[in-house]
């Protein structure tokens, strides 16, 4: 007999899904733009600057989701009372605060047309907070007692790679939209290899859940089968299809746009699946 699930699903729903999507997209896009500014500024400066203009509004929307998700939104600033490395949420709050400030600086720098050296400094300063912001949510979920999440030892790694691929997807869409075939080719290449890495990371997440015999921890066998099918669906539709599109769609801006849409849509769908997992496991305990 399968032991009864006794944990309560956390009161996290749509706002959290939106937060995961926006934060991953914003941090991934900032990472891509910052790397471009630091490593190849002479070729794609305009594209990186456009990306910096997008990141801050994304972060504003993300902060709104984070606040609205609280049981008492008027107390959002209580998060800044303490810093606890033992709490991934506390680490995340401070990281997001730092990243939002740097995203704001990058936004202002673009609006006011600050010199290139200032933008390079901002990009360098924001790289570490952006990378941590892209990855920490995975650790936040895996360090819980929730069925499904608690065995996902590689979820932090998977989030890091997924955030980067979503940022690269957005950069690909920008390059295709701006009519820059050279930049589009570069980002197609990056998207493809990040998605390959993402597939490996998702495989690790799936493996750490299944091999320890705890996939059935999401409920009965039928629920476990549904979860397995969803994982497979994400790998095939969300990762396999865009990898193929990247490989065959050279020079076609419509295919580039479609690729970016699938990467971002897949990121959103997988995050919604993740947020819903404990609720599916313990439907009467939310």
């Amino acid at each position: 007999m399968q032991p009864r699930i006794v944990t309560k699903a956390p009161p996290w729903h749509g706002w959290v899904t939106a937060d995961l999507f926006l934060l991953s997209t914003a941090s991934g896009t900032f990472t891509m733009a910052a790397m471009v500014v630091l490593l190849r500024p002479w070729e794609m400066d305009a594209l990186a600057r456009a990306a910096f203009l997008i990141v801050f509004p994304l972060m504003l929307a993300d902060l709104a989701c984070l606040i609205l998700d609280l049981g008492d939104p008027a107390r959002f600033h209580h998060m800044l009372r303490t810093f606890k490395p033992s709490s991934p949420m506390s680490v995340g709050v401070w990281t997001i605060s730092a990243f939002s400030f740097i995203a704001f600086l990058a936004f202002i720098a673009e609006i006011l047309d600050w010199p290139q050296s200032a933008i390079r400094s901002i990009a360098a300063a924001g790289l570490v907070p952006a990378l941590v912001a892209g990855a920490y949510k995975g650790v936040l979920f895996s360090a819980t007692a929730q069925p499904g999440w608690r065995r996902m030892r590689w979820l932090g790694g998977a989030f890091a790679v997924s955030s980067a691929s979503m940022g690269a997807g957005l950069m690909l869409a920008l390059a295709a939209g701006a009519g820059q075939p050279g930049a589009a080719r570069l980002f197609r290449f990056i998207v493809m290899w990040l998605l390959v890495l993402n597939a490996l990371a998702v495989r690790r997440v799936m493996g750490s859940t299944a091999t320890t015999g705890h996939l059935s921890d999401v409920g009965d066998r039928r629920a476990a089968l549904r979860v397995s099918l969803c994982y497979t669906g994400f790998i095939v539709a969300g990762l396999g299809v865009p990898i193929v599109l990247c490989a065959i769609g050279g020079g076609n801006s419509t295919i580039d746009g479609l690729t970016a849409a699938i990467v971002l849509g897949g990121g959103l769908a997988s995050r919604q699946f993740l947020v819903a997992l404990p609720h599916r496991s313990a439907p009467n305990r939310t």
Partner: peptide, 18 residues
């Protein structure tokens, strides 16, 4: 493991750009 994933992604991006 999160740091490992981050470094792997960063390596792919840096190697591609360079």
């Amino acid at each position: 493991r999160a740091a490992f994933g981050t470094l792997a992604a960063l390596a792919v991006i840096a190697a591609s750009l360079m």
